[in-house]
């Protein structure tokens, strides 16, 4: 069993101790970024695929992400301390928000996956269209991730996209959430650039968009 498979098993059973041991063992041989790339990222991507196939539950994804996030705080600390190239100015400007909705879990899971994979992401929390457009514009965001649970909120993404195209045409917008899973054309209908059907997909999407940690 590879180390990332072992980590996956530890995460599925929410075995924090085992996950910690695996990361510590990997850290003894690799840099923090390599640990993320070799272990954590594949495990989280696989978790997303399992959920997509109905083979693991959202509660496992969330709690796994939480474990990873906690264990990685130390690693991330090391990265910023030892690698001056990791300055904020050099990072991709990535933000995540929930649009006009009060269900924040999806956003939290995606944020956790991103953090665990080495991305820094601005968390705007819950926002309406106007405030979100202003935040994206003033912060110079390059990729905006938008999470929705309810259909009306998913449809409001169209207004968000139209407003953003007018003031910040280069911003790419990635959507996710239940409505998009039940209508595979909905993301196109609202004008998004991409859709993530599970949290793990966000890493592949960012790779396609050539956004690196």
């Amino acid at each position: 069993m590879s180390s990332s498979d072992a980590l996956l098993q530890a995460l599925l059973t929410l075995n924090r101790v085992q996950a910690q041991e695996l990361l510590a063992a990997a850290r003894a041989e690799h840099s923090a970024l390599e640990v993320i790339e070799l272990l954590i990222r594949p495990a989280l991507e696989q978790l997303g695929q399992l959920w997509e196939g109905g083979d693991c539950a959202l509660s496992q994804i969330y709690m796994s992400g939480r474990i990873c996030e906690e264990l990685l705080e130390e690693l991330f600390g090391e990265i910023s301390e030892t690698d001056p190239s990791e300055s904020e100015a050099a990072e991709p400007r990535l933000a995540i928000a929930v649009l006009e909705d009060y269900h924040l879990l999806g956003k939290q899971i995606v944020r956790t996956v991103l953090r665990a994979a080495g991305y820094r992401v601005r968390d705007y929390g819950r926002q309406d269209v106007e405030t979100l457009v202003e935040l994206v514009r003033s912060d110079g965001i390059e990729v905006l991730l938008v999470s929705t649970l309810m259909l009306p909120a998913a449809l409001r993404v169209r207004a968000l996209v139209e407003r953003l195209r007018a003031v910040a045409p280069d911003v790419r917008i990635v959507v996710g959430g239940a409505p998009y899973r039940f209508d595979d054309q909905l993301w196109r209908e609202v004008g998004a650039d991409a859709v993530g059907l599970s949290a793990g997909e966000i890493l592949a999407i960012l790779e396609r968009l050539e956004v690196k940690p």
């Binding site: 929410l14 509660s59 969330y62 709690m63 939480r66 269900h103 924040l104 879990l105 939290q108």
Partner: peptide
């Protein structure tokens, strides 16, 4: 509680 807080409570 909110979904996130509830999942943590449950576990």
């Amino acid at each position: 509680l909110g979904f996130e807080r509830y999942l943590i409570l449950m576990h």
